[in-house]
């Protein structure tokens, strides 16, 4: 073969390499574009969609991560608050509505509430305010607004500063559970409190405000000062032992017993030791 023919052959190879590079870049372009599926095989797996409680979301994300390792299924997780999740599942917008409050008589018919775990609600203050304990009447006085200054609260270290109240919006399951467990028969005074849409926001507000007080799911108490309630510290050990009084249920809500993939997932959460081990890391397992 003549050397010029060999060079032409090499030239052809380089053209192919150039073309291949362009093709590869185009494939990368499509694959990395937001929302583009990276793997077409995932399309064949059934998708379980979840929305609702911001308290349940951290647990749901960890359970989904474990479940997909051994099951051919895909999840789509969003949030919005317990009422949003219950409304979404009732209208068929999601397979599972995550809720951190118990069923209400006003909830739409045909919903099935599956209990998956229990969770402690902590009253939290800024770390600059090491308030040691609150009785039920103390919590009620602060959140109802009959006590407005820290010097009226025994053990608080904020002088006569005004108490900054941070509570959750009406769509929140944590708000509903807090009302039942800590406040009944009086209610939270929303006119003097700042209403926030998520546990994370209450946590951030209290962390950054030395005069702040709020309530969050135990998972979100990091970086704040959890106040003991009725003489019992708000921690996982006391929540598991049943000593701590402010413990509520976590639910996964379906419309009837459908869809099958969602029901299988919920049964796995309730019954498998792997799932309950995940629950036990930050929440109270069922068994």
């Amino acid at each position: 073969m003549s050397s010029s023919r060999m060079r032409l052959r090499r030239l052809g190879r380089w053209r192919r390499v150039g073309g291949a590079a362009l093709l590869t870049a185009a494939v990368v372009l499509v694959a990395v574009a937001p929302g583009a599926p990276a793997d077409t095989s995932a399309k064949r797996a059934p998708t379980i969609t979840m929305s609702g409680s911001t308290s349940v979301a951290p647990l749901a994300a960890k359970l989904a991560q474990k479940y997909v390792q051994s099951h051919n299924v895909q999840f789509r997780l969003s949030q919005g608050g317990s009422d949003v999740g219950i409304s979404d599942v009732a209208h068929g917008r999601v397979s599972i509505g995550n809720s951190s409050r118990d069923p209400k008589p006003t909830d739409p018919g045909g919903l099935v509430f599956h209990k998956i775990a229990r969770d402690a609600i902590c009253v939290v203050t800024n770390t600059a305010n090491g308030l040691p304990n609150l009785s039920q009447s103390g919590v009620q006085a602060i959140f109802h607004g009959s006590v407005r200054h820290w010097n009226q609260v025994p053990g608080a270290g904020r002088g006569s500063n005004t108490i900054d109240l941070f509570v959750r919006t009406a769509a929140s399951g944590t708000q509903d559970a807090f009302q039942k467990l800590f406040m009944d028969p009086v209610s939270v005074n929303n006119s003097i409190a700042k209403q926030l849409a998520s546990n994370g926001l209450v946590q951030q507000k209290v962390k950054s405000d030395p005069d702040g007080i709020g309530y969050v799911s135990l998972f979100f108490a990091k970086g704040t000062h959890p106040v003991a309630y009725k003489g019992v510290a708000c921690n996982l050990r006391n929540a598991k032992s049943g000593q701590y009084g402010g413990v509520r249920n976590f639910w996964m809500v379906t419309k009837g017993n459908q869809p099958a993939a969602a029901i299988s997932f919920i049964h796995w959460v309730q019954n498998s030791s792997a799932a309950q081990a995940i629950v036990a890391t930050n929440w109270v397992p069922l068994h």
Partner: peptide, 17 residues
């Protein structure tokens, strides 16, 4: 310091891109 006004709630597929 953590922001007292800003918050983001994430959503997406699991597993996903």
């Amino acid at each position: 310091d953590p922001s007292s006004t800003d918050a983001l709630n994430c959503e997406g597929p699991i597993p996903g891109p």
